[in-house]
């Protein structure tokens, strides 16, 4: 039933060209184990490249921020800086979430994006009937999301257990 263990032997004639094909297809052929020194050097180079990239990115972002600040009013800049910092924190935090928890992550971020309910809550007190009706619909829909999202996230997280 189970094929014999030297199964690769059966393939012996084709392999040479096949290996070539793999090398051509893969950008990084993993054929030879690099020595520890090479590994270390590669890691250092990667780290340097990454740092360089990050520094450039931050510099560009800072320049852009300054450019926006030259033309935009102060009230806008205050919110804009909050926005930029939040994106930055968001990236830092989300990268650290384990892959296995990505579905709960999506449902919880969905729940918290219903924070848009605040907009509708601010608007519902308006004297205009149209605004009030629309805002009421908005509040209703966003609250489905808030409760549904948080509850289903809790349900999912409770399922994960160790052996």
């Amino acid at each position: 039933m189970a094929p014999p263990s030297p199964i690769r032997g059966n393939h012996l004639p084709p392999p040479p060209p096949k290996v070539k094909a793999i090398a051509a297809a893969k950008p990084k052929p993993k054929e030879k184990e690099p020595t520890p020194e090479e590994k270390k050097a590669a890691e250092l180079a990667a780290f340097k490249a990454q740092t360089k990239q990050q520094v450039t990115l931050i510099a560009v972002a800072a320049a852009l921020l300054l450019a926006v600040g030259l033309v935009a009013p102060a009230s806008f800049m205050q919110h804009f800086i909050v926005f930029v910092l939040s994106v930055f924190i968001g990236f830092q935090v989300i990268w650290k979430v384990a892959h296995s928890l990505h579905t709960p992550l999506m449902s919880v971020t969905n729940a918290i994006s219903s924070i848009v309910i605040l907009g509708a809550l601010i608007q519902i007190g308006s004297s205009s009937m149209l605004i009030t009706v629309l805002a009421a619909a908005g509040i209703f829909m966003a609250s489905i999301n808030i409760f549904g999202g948080f509850l289903v996230t809790r349900r999912m997280l409770a399922m994960f257990q160790k052996s």
Binding site: S86, G90, L118
Partner: peptide, 23 residues
């Protein structure tokens, strides 16, 4: 959040936005 001048909306929106982008 920007149009309402509400920082909380901006912060949460940006967090969710970057989270989805990373995924």
């Amino acid at each position: 959040g920007f149009s309402l001048g509400n920082d909380l909306l901006i912060v949460v929106g940006a967090l969710v936005g970057s989270s989805g982008a990373i995924l």
